[in-house]
Structures are given as structure tokens and as C-alpha cells.
């Protein structure tokens, strides 16, 4: 009555997807690899939000991280090294109805894919980007990555890395039109889940850097932070990543940070004493390129032909 009763939709039988419906092939990551936690979190999120698997697309590049799509029973695009972002933008450009996740790694995103990284942040199309940062090239067996710490040894730098690492958070926060930048850790599943969920819910490009353990090549890197939680600072704020008060107590260090404050976010990103974990920046009003690209969807054949005819006629003699 009065246009408020959703009789039609309410009566359509609901389809209930279980966790199994999102589970694809058995993951081949090493035991203890942080990627497992991310996969579980994303599958849980899909189940909690009841995302139809046929409407969900996971796009990745190349790397350990980028095996991700094969382990989800949704549509996937396992693409080229460094090139997940332009593909994801193309997929989104005419499909407002799809739920999209983009999985990338520190080499994939911050080395070969840098150009696309910068511009995809700026396009701010509705994407959820998870950068699985284990500070190393894992799949190709132990080469230095742009985020590898100073002094770390690898196959390409046996005497130790001589350059300070790139800070993906600072770089992303330096790009115009950035709209959502967060960092989380794979060894705290509730925080990981809440961050990914907030990223999914944000309309725009959500960039989440996941500090991801690699037991095979960089087991020492995050082991310290895992044991001594003082090396991690939990960002708190009512507009930030929500976390149960009981779970907040697992983090001895807290910092109140307003995610709308870009300058403060940049400060948080660049501080080196500990890993900031939580939402660094959020801007709901950033321009969205996909809202532009969606225009004209659904034009009928007649309308298209009329437009083409009109342009063609300008050349008539």
C-alpha cells in the first residue's frame, strides 16, 4: 500500500549461499602463509553479505598473492604481472552490478604495476584492492621487492638491500583523489575481516595494505610484530575500522586518528616506530570515474543507430 510494500521482492525465494559456495580450488599456499587468512576473510565477507558468486569477480596479477582468484568459486581474472588494475577498471567500467576484489602483491603493485597503481587510485572506481605485502617476491623465489627492508638479503641482493623501502601507504596518500586507505595485519583475523569489510562497503577505490607473513622467505619480518604487539599501533576513531573493545585490548598501543584528516594520515603513514593498523584515510566525496563510464548503459539498439546515423550524415555530400 502507498508504494511501500515490496511484495514482489519479498516473495521471491531467497537463495542462501554458504561458505562452501565461495570456496574454489584448495589453496596451494605454504602452511602459515598469511594469504590463507585473507582468503578466509574474503570468503566470510562474501557469505555474510550474501554476494552471488556469479556476480563477484576477483582480479589479480601475478605472484603468490595473485593465485587468489583460483581459490574462490566466483568469476576470476588471473592476469599479467603488474596489470591487475587496468583490467579491474575495465571490468568495472560497464558493470555497476558486480562485486569486485583486486588482489595484488608488493612486486605486482609497487614495482611493475606502479603506473597503474597511481592512476587507479585517482580513477577511484568502485574496487576493493588488497595489497598482500610480504616484503619479497615469493613466487619467483626470493628477489628483493620495493617494500623489502634495508639490509635484507635476497637472491638478487645477496649482500643486502641498499635502498630504503617504498612506503605504499605514503605513496597512495600522495595521489590525488584517493578515497580509502587502510592497513591491517593477517595475524589478527577480526581486524583483518573488519578492515576488508569496511573497504568493501566503501564506494570508491579502497586500498588496503595487508602485512602478510611469508613463512618461507621472510618469516622474521613480521614475527617480531606478531610477538611484541607494541610494534603495532591500533588506530581508533568512531569513523575508523570498528573493533570489539575486548579485541582492542590485544593492542597495547592505541592512537586516536580522524580518518578524514589527510595531513594527519600522511603523518601516521610515515611514522616508522610501529606499524599503524586501521583506517588512515577516508573521503566519501572523491570523484568517481565509473559514474562517468556507466552513462549510456542500456541504450536501445534504435537509439544507438540513430546516434550513428546522425554522425554519419555529417559527412554526406
Amino acid at each position: 500500500m502507498h508504494g511501500e510494500r515490496r511484495e514482489w521482492e519479498a516473495e521471491a525465494p531467497l537463495r542462501q549461499c554458504t561458505l562452501e559456495d565461495y570456496q574454489g580450488a584448495t589453496p596451494r599456499w605454504c602452511p602459515g602463509c598469511g594469504d590463507h587468512a585473507v582468503l578466509s576473510a574474503v570468503q566470510r565477507l562474501a557469505r555474510d553479505k550474501q554476494l552471488p558468486p556469479e556476480k563477484t569477480v576477483v582480479v589479480s596479477g601475478i605472484g603468490c598473492s595473485s593465485r587468489f582468484p583460483h581459490y574462490m568459486a566466483t568469476y576470476g581474472f588471473h592476469g599479467l604481472h603488474g596489470r591487475a588494475f587496468p583490467v579491474a577498471c575495465g571490468v568495472r567500467s560497464r558493470r555497476p552490478d558486480l562485486h569486485m576484489f583486486v588482489i595484488t602483491g608488493d612486486g605486482d603493485c609497487c614495482a611493475i604495476g606502479t603506473a597503474h597503481w597511481i592512476h587507479t587510485i585517482r580513477y577511484n572506481m568502485d574496487l576493493t584492492i588488497l595489497l598482500l605485502d610480504n616484503n619479497i617476491y615469493g613466487l619467483t623465489k626470493n628477489q628483493t621487492s620495493p617494500t623489502t627492508h634495508l639490509g635484507e638479503r635476497s637472491n638478487t641482493h645477496p649482500r643486502g638491500n641498499v635502498l630504503p623501502p617504498l612506503n605504499p601507504l605514503s605513496v597512495t596518500l600522495g595521489v590525488a583523489n584517493a578515497s580509502f586507505v587502510a592497513q591491517t595485519i593477517d595475524w589478527n583475523p577480526p581486524h583483518l575481516y573488519n578492515t576488508i569489510r569496511a573497504a568493501y562497503e566503501h564506494k570508491g577505490t579502497s586500498f588496503v595494505r595487508v602485512l602478510q607473513r611469508c613463512p618461507h622467505f621472510t618469516s622474521h619480518i613480521f614475527a617480531e610484530a606478531q610477538q611484541d604487539m607494541n610494534l603495532v599501533t591500533l588506530l581508533t576513531h568512531e569513523d575508523g575500522i570498528p573493533l570489539d573493545p575486548q579485541l582492542q585490548r590485544l593492542f597495547p598501543k592505541h592512537q586516536m586518528h580522524d580518518p578524514h584528516d589527510l595531513a594527519a594520515a600522511r603523518g601516521v603513514a610515515s611514522q616508522e616506530a610501529s606499524y599503524p593498523v586501521g583506517l588512515l584515510y577516508r573521503n566519501e566525496n572523491a570523484a568517481r570515474y565509473d559514474l562517468q563510464t556507466f552513462q549510456g548503459l542500456g541504450k536501445s539498439q534504435a537509439e544507438k543507430m540513430a546516434a550513428t546515423e546522425q554522425w554519419l550524415s555529417r559527412f554526406e555530400i
Binding site: M1, H2, G3, E4, R5, R6, E7, W8, E11, A12, P13
Partner: peptide, 21 residues
Amino acid sequence: PVHDPILHRFRWEAAGAGELA
């Protein structure tokens, strides 16, 4: 099987606000 009965039961009261307006 799903939509035929719904269609059969459809009355104007189930219309959306935009349609009524």
C-alpha cells in the same frame, strides 16, 4: 515456477512509490 504465482497475485498496492507517483 517462482515468478508466475507472484505475477498472478500482483496488485497495484505492490507497485513502487515512483510508479504510484
